[in-house]
Design a protein around this nucleic acid. Structure first.
Lengths: 193, 193, 193, 193
DNA sequence: GATGAATGAGCGTTCATTCAT
DNA sequence: GATGAATGAACGCTCATTCAT
C-alpha cells in the first residue's frame, strides 16, 4: 500500500463519488464524462485510465448504489404483521425520504438496462430471509410460502413506488404502505399466523 | 379521401410503425430520428411535418400501446376471484405482449413528468368500476372496500411491470400475475365473498 | 380586371402584408416562408406561384416598407432653423414611434445587404430638396451647401437611431433630436441665414 | 509555455482568423460553424472546446476589431478643430480599415441586444475626456458644452458608419469624416475657440 | 500515470424549395 | 392556379473517446 496506490485508489473513488453525486443532482441522462471530470477536478484522460468506457463506471456505480437496504433486525416480541409492517415501512421510508425526482431517476435507472437486475433479487432475498426469521421465531407457521409472500409484498412496494412516480401529488408512498399493511397485510399473513 | 390524404396517412403510420419496431429491436435509448427516417425510407424533413418534436411521436406510440387497457366485460357466472383474475391477466397480457423494451419505454415515459398522472387514476377507476360491478352482481358483499382493493391490485400489477423491467429474464409478468391470483388474491377477496 | 386577376392580386397583397406584419412582430430573422403562409392561410405552393424565391418577396417588401418618409411641406413663415427642426423631429418621430425592436430590426435590415442602398440616398435627396425649398423662399442664402448640409443632418439622425438601438434606456431619440436642433443646428445654419 | 499550450493558442487563433476572413468574404449571415471549421481544417468538436457557443466567437471577434478605439493622445500645439479632426479621423480609420462586412456585423451585433449598451457610453466618455483635455489646454473655452459636443460628434460618426453599411459603394467613411470636419466641425467649435 | 487538446459521428431541428395532384 | 406532402442540405451543438505530450 504505497503512496501511489493510495492516490490511485482515491482518484478512482473520487470519480465514482462525483458521478454518483451528479446523477443524484442532475439525473442520469444529463451526466457526461465531461461533467464528471470537471466536477471532480480530474483530467479527462485520467478518467480513461481508470475506466475503459463510461459504461464501466456506471456499472460499478450501480453495484454500490442500490445495495441491499435492509439487514437483519430485531423483531422483539411483536407479532408477524407488526414486524413485517415495520420492515416495509422502513423500506419505503428510505425511498420516500428522497425527493420524487430521485425516485423517478431511480425507476428510470433500474429499468434502463439489465445492469441492475440483481437489485430486485437482492430485495426479495432480503425480505424472504426476514420472513424465514419470523418462522424460526414461531411467529409464522412453517407452512408459510415464504418466497411467494416476499415476492408479493415487495411487488406491492415496487408498485407503490411506480405509482408515486406517475402521480406524486396524489400518492403518498408512506401512507399507502401503512394503508396496505393495515388493511391487506393481515389477510395475506393471517392463515399462517 | 384523395390519393394524397391516403399517402399522408400511410407516411405517418410508417413512421410510427418503424419507430415502434426499432424501439423493440434496439432499445428506446438508441432510437434516433435519423434511424427512424433511414429505416423507413422517409426524408428527415417529412418526419417533422408530422411530429413537431421527437417526443410527440414517442408519446403517441405509448398512447397507442397502453391506452384503454380494459373496457367493461361480461363476467358470466364466474365467481369474484375468477372474474378479477381474468381481468388482471388480460391487463397484464396487453403489456406483456409488447416487448420488454416497450414496457421499459412506457415506465420511463410515465415516470418522466407529471403529464401522465391521469394514467394511474384511470386504471384505478377502471378496476374499481369492475369491482363495483361484481358487488352489484352479488358476487362480492356490499362491505367490500372497493377502492382500496382496486388500488392494491393495480399496485401489484404495476409492481410486477416494474420488476419485469428490472429483470426481464427472471420474471415472466403473466406467470407472476397468475401466481398472485392463485395464491394471494383469494386471501384478499375471501372475506367479502 | 376580371375576377381572377383580382383574386390573384389580393393573394399577392395578402402575402406581402402578412410578411410585413410578421417581420414587425417577430423580427426579420424569425420570419420563414412557413410562418408567412400559415399566418395568411395560403398554401405553401401558392407562395411560390407568386414569388420565385423568398428573397423576391423580401425585396418587394423593402421597396414599400422604407419608402421616403417625408414629402414636401409647408414651411409658412417660420425661419430656416425652425423649419428644419420641424422636419427632423417629424422624421425621428416616425421612427421613434415604433418600438425599439422594430428600429433594431430596421437597422439590421438596411445594413444586411446592398438591397437597401436607395434608402439612404432617397432620404438625403428628400432633405436636400427641403433645404433647396428654403433657399428658394429666401430663408437661406444661395450659398448654402445644400447637399453637404443635408448629408450632415441626416447622418446625425442615423447616428441617433443607431445609438438608440445600442442603448435604448439611456437614449431618447426625440429628445436627442430636439437637443441637437436647439444647441447645434443653429451653429450649422447661421452663416447662411 | 509548453508545446501543447502553444498549439492550443494557435488553434484558437486560427478559428478566429478563419471566421474573420470568411465574414469578410461571404458576409456575416452566411458564415456557419461548419464553414469555419472546414475552412480552418479543424474538427467541429474542437471549435466547441474553445467557444461555448458560436455567439462567443462572434463577440470576441467584434471586441478585437472595435475595442479600445481611442486612448489618450498628444495634441501638441494644434488648435481645437485640428485636434478633434485628427481624433475623429483616427476613430473612423480603425473602422473603415475593416471590410464593410465586418462593419455590418458590428452594427448588427451592437444593435442586437442590450448587452452592448456600454459601448456607446464608453465612446462618448472617451471623446468627452478628450474635449475636456482641450479645455484644460486652453484650446477651448471653459464654456464649451463638452458632453453635448461629444455626443453630437460621436453621433455623427455613428451615423456615417450606419450610412456606410447601407450603401458602401456610394459612401467612403473616411472621406465623409474629413468632409464633416472641414465643413461643419468649425461651425460647431468656433464659438468656443 | 496524468494531462487536456483534438476528434468526428451523431443529435434534434429548421427551412427554402419542388412537384404530383 | 391552388395545394400541401415530400425533400435533404444545413444548422448549432453534444459527447464518448483517442493520443501526443
Amino acid at each position: 500500500m504505497g503512496k501511489r496506490e493510495d492516490n490511485a485508489k482515491q482518484t478512482r473513488a473520487k470519480l465514482l463519488d462525483t458521478a454518483d453525486r451528479l446523477i443524484v443532482k442532475d439525473g442520469y441522462e444529463r451526466v457526461s464524462v465531461d461533467s464528471i471530470v470537471k466536477a471532480s477536478g480530474i483530467a479527462k484522460g485520467t478518467f480513461y485510465n481508470y475506466f475503459k468506457r463510461k459504461e464501466d463506471l456506471i456499472f460499478e456505480l450501480s453495484k454500490h448504489r442500490f445495495a441491499n437496504l435492509i439487514g437483519s433486525r430485531d423483531t422483539g416480541n411483536q407479532d408477524a404483521v407488526t414486524s413485517i409492517s415495520a420492515y416495509l415501512e422502513e423500506f419505503m421510508t428510505v425511498i420516500a425520504n428522497s425527493k420524487i425526482e430521485l425516485a423517478r431517476q431511480w425507476v428510470r435507472y433500474v429499468s434502463a438496462s439489465d445492469a441492475n437486475k440483481d437489485k430486485w433479487q437482492l430485495d426479495v432475498d432480503s425480505l424472504e430471509r426476514f420472513i424465514q426469521q419470523l418462522i424460526r421465531e414461531d411467529k409464522l407457521s412453517a407452512k408459510t410460502p415464504h418466497y411467494v409472500l416476499a415476492e408479493t409484498l415487495l411487488t406491492q412496494m415496487y408498485g407503490i413506488i411506480l405509482s408515486w412516480c406517475i402521480d406524486p401529488k396524489a400518492i403518498d408512498p408512506i401512507q399507502r404502505t401503512q394503508q396496505f399493511c393495515t388493511q391487506q397485510l393481515e389477510l395475506l399473513v393471517n392463515p399462517y399466523q
